[in-house]
C-alpha cells in the first residue's frame, strides 16, 4: 500500500464560499439540487447523490447573546474502519491503495445496506442509476497526480490534501495555535489513528464540540454487533428447537395430551 492520503479540513479557515461544493459538482458531473428550506442557513441539509461536499452553516449562540458563525465543509470521512465497506455484500465498496474508500458503480447492486451502515449518513442512493454514491476522493484525479477538486478550489486552504502523517502533524500544531489564541474548544476530529473507527482519512479541526456540527461524538463501527447478536440468535434457536423437540417427542402410543 502506498502512503495513506488524507484531506484535512480546518474549519477555522472556512469562509463558507462553497467553492469546494461547486468544484466537486463540476468535476464529478453532479446535477443541481432543489432548494430545501430548513429554518436555518443550511440549504440543503444532507449529502445526496448530487452533493458529495457540503458546507455546513451553523449559528452558535455566544455568551454575549449574539450568534457566532461556525462553517464547516463536510465530506465522506474515508474511515480506516468503514461501516459502508464492511456492509457491502457485492464488494462494490473497496479501499484503494491510498487508503480511500470508493464505490464501483458497475458492481453496486443497489441493496442500500451501506446507506444504513455509514455512521455519518454519507452514502446516498441514486434513484436513477439504482446505485449508491458518495465522495470518491476524486479517485481519477489522485491517480493522475492531481489533488481532489475541492481541496484545489478552496481559496483559504481550509481543505488541505496530502499524506496523512504530514497533515496530522500540521493539524496538531494548528490546534495549539488556536488554543493559544483563545479558541478553547478547538479540537481535532478523527485525526487519531488509535481513536474511533481507526481514524478518518478525511479529518477535521473543529472550533466546538462535534455535536454542534452534527457529527457523532463517538461513532462506532456497526459491524461490532455481528458476533454477539449472532450468538444470542443461536441461543434463541436452541431454546426454540428444544421447545419443538419436547412438543414432538414421540412418547409412544396411547398418549395424546396436546
Amino acid at each position: 500500500m502506498a502512503r495513506t492520503l488524507a484531506m484535512f479540513t480546518d474549519t477555522s479557515l472556512c469562509i463558507g464560499c462553497r467553492a469546494c461544493q461547486v468544484a466537486c459538482k463540476q468535476w464529478n458531473e453532479l446535477g443541481m439540487e432543489v432548494p430545501e428550506w430548513t429554518g436555518t442557513y443550511q440549504n440543503h441539509e444532507h449529502f445526496t447523490d448530487k452533493t458529495f461536499r457540503l458546507v455546513r452553516f451553523i449559528e452558535e449562540p455566544k455568551p454575549t447573546g449574539d450568534l457566532a458563525w461556525l462553517l464547516m465543509s463536510d465530506v465522506c470521512k474515508h474511515c480506516a474502519q468503514a461501516g459502508c465497506l464492511d456492509a457491502c455484500p457485492t464488494g462494490a465498496i473497496y479501499r484503494t491503495e491510498y487508503g480511500t474508500v470508493n464505490i464501483s458503480q458497475d458492481v453496486c447492486n443497489g441493496c442500500r445496506y451501506c446507506v444504513s451502515s455509514c455512521p455519518f449518513g454519507v452514502v446516498a442512493f441514486n434513484e436513477s442509476t439504482g446505485t449508491a454514491t458518495k465522495c470518491t476522493f476524486c479517485n481519477d484525479r489522485i491517480h493522475n497526480g492531481l489533488g481532489p477538486a475541492c481541496a484545489k478550489a478552496c481559496p483559504t486552504e481550509s481543505i488541505q490534501f496530502g499524506f496523512r502523517d504530514d497533515l496530522v502533524a500540521k493539524a496538531q500544531k494548528r490546534v495549539e495555535t488556536l488554543k493559544a489564541m483563545g479558541f478553547k474548544d478547538a479540537q481535532l476530529y478523527g485525526a487519531d489513528a488509535k481513536g474511533f473507527l481507526g481514524g478518518l482519512n478525511a479529518f477535521f479541526l473543529l472550533l466546538s464540540r462535534p455535536g454542534t456540527y452534527h457529527l457523532p461524538e463517538n461513532p462506532k463501527l456497526p459491524q461490532r454487533n455481528v458476533v454477539v447478536d449472532s450468538l444470542l440468535s443461536i441461543g434463541s434457536a436452541l431454546i426454540v428447537g428444544l421447545g419443538a423437540l419436547l412438543a414432538f417427542r414421540d412418547r409412544g402410543k396411547g398418549r395424546d395430551d396436546a
Partner: peptide, 19 residues
C-alpha cells in the same frame, strides 16, 4: 442481525433483534 449491525439508532442498540 442485519438490522442490528447497521448504524441506525434503535436497530443497532437491539442486541436481541435476531433472537
Amino acid at each position: 442481525v442485519l438490522l442490528s449491525s447497521s448504524a441506525q439508532p434503535f436497530w443497532s442498540e437491539a442486541r436481541l433483534m435476531g433472537a
